[in-house]
């Protein structure tokens, strides 16, 4: 998974290809490549093209109109807000969790590592229901929250909470193997040389993990903006208030407003494309950095 590991595979493959003794016969290569490409076009490229085609079928006017609609703008704003809150939160948590798991020995370390994976293994709907159970009107803290006039479920805080929960693993998972591989020696060296905790983190740890961190942030952000299941449970689908972009797409689609639905969906698809570009750029950068330090 780690960004640095990806290029090595390519180098090895080339070595196999150039060696007559290990090279596959041409038709085997073509068959495998053909199957992979056909699958790729059918299940990945076609739907993507379809999204943009549907979005623009009724012309640019409808497209722009769908996106500048008040509810659509509110959904975009809310999505950006949710990402702007949950990504920094998970950035701090991810670095702290990865740091403690990779650099310290403590009881329950394995448990914490497993716990970080929980959002990956649990269905997002259940994640949403957990928060309803906790903060909903009939939930554990429901009565207290109503008494103090605090709204979490069917409001923005609930959406943020659900998103934070879903995106917890992205940054931590990216950093843990990276930091474990780098060990503690450089930090120890910095401490012996007189650096305090912050200086050690800022001057030694952070530069060593920056590409992995950025990679994690990009993936985290993509998921935060695209999350549907958990957010759908806690949002309440109030137009212009608690609708994120994915939820807005669903509503429009259910109203048979296909052009508008696909227009908003195309924005999300565009976000995905940008994410992919950034991701491959960072992978490339990280592999350059790895080559420099090997």
């Amino acid at each position: 998974m780690s960004a640095a590991g990806i290029l090595h595979g390519r180098v090895d493959a080339r070595r196999f290809e150039n060696n007559a003794a290990t090279r596959e016969s041409p038709w085997v290569r073509r068959a495998i490549l053909g199957v992979a490409l056909a699958f790729f076009v059918l299940f990945l490229v076609l739907p993507l093209v379809a999204v943009f085609a549907e979005a623009l079928r009724k012309g640019w006017g409808t497209y722009v109109h769908a996106l500048t609609d008040a509810d659509a703008l509110a959904a975009i704003r809310l999505t950006l807000l949710v990402a702007a809150v949950s990504v920094p939160l998970n950035l701090v948590f991810g670095v702290a969790a990865a740091w403690s798991i990779a650099k310290f020995e403590f009881r329950g370390k394995h448990f914490l590592t497993t716990l970080i994976d929980l959002p990956f293994s649990v269905s997002p709907v259940i994640a949403g229901l957990i928060f309803v159970l906790l903060f909903g009107a009939h939930g554990w803290f429901g009565a207290w929250l109503i008494a103090h006039d605090i709204k979490i479920i069917f409001a923005v805080p609930g959406i943020v909470l659900a998103t934070v929960f879903i995106t917890v693993p992205f940054i931590a998972r990216e950093l843990i193997p990276l930091m474990e591989a780098q060990g503690r020696e450089e930090e120890e060296a910095a401490t012996v040389l007189g650096a305090n905790g912050f200086q050690t983190f800022w001057r030694v740890t952070l530069p060593n993990i920056k590409w992995g961190l950025l990679y994690g942030v990009i993936l985290c952000n993509a998921r935060a903006m695209g999350e549907f299941g958990a957010v759908s449970v806690v949002s309440g689908h109030i137009r212009g208030m608690t609708n994120t972009m994915p939820l807005h797409v669903e509503i429009l689609y259910n109203e048979y407003n296909f052009a508008a639905a696909f227009a908003v969906a195309s924005l999300l698809a565009l976000l995905a494309l940008v994410t992919l570009c950034l991701k491959s750029f960072i992978e490339w950068k990280a592999s350059q950095a790895a080559k420099d330090t090997e």
Binding site: E185, E186, E188, A189, A190, R203, V204, P207, N208, A289, D292, T293
Partner: peptide, 10 residues
């Protein structure tokens, strides 16, 4: 340190 522990990015 045995394995130098030089700061690799500096």
């Amino acid at each position: 340190f045995q394995h130098y522990a030089l700061f690799r990015h500096m």
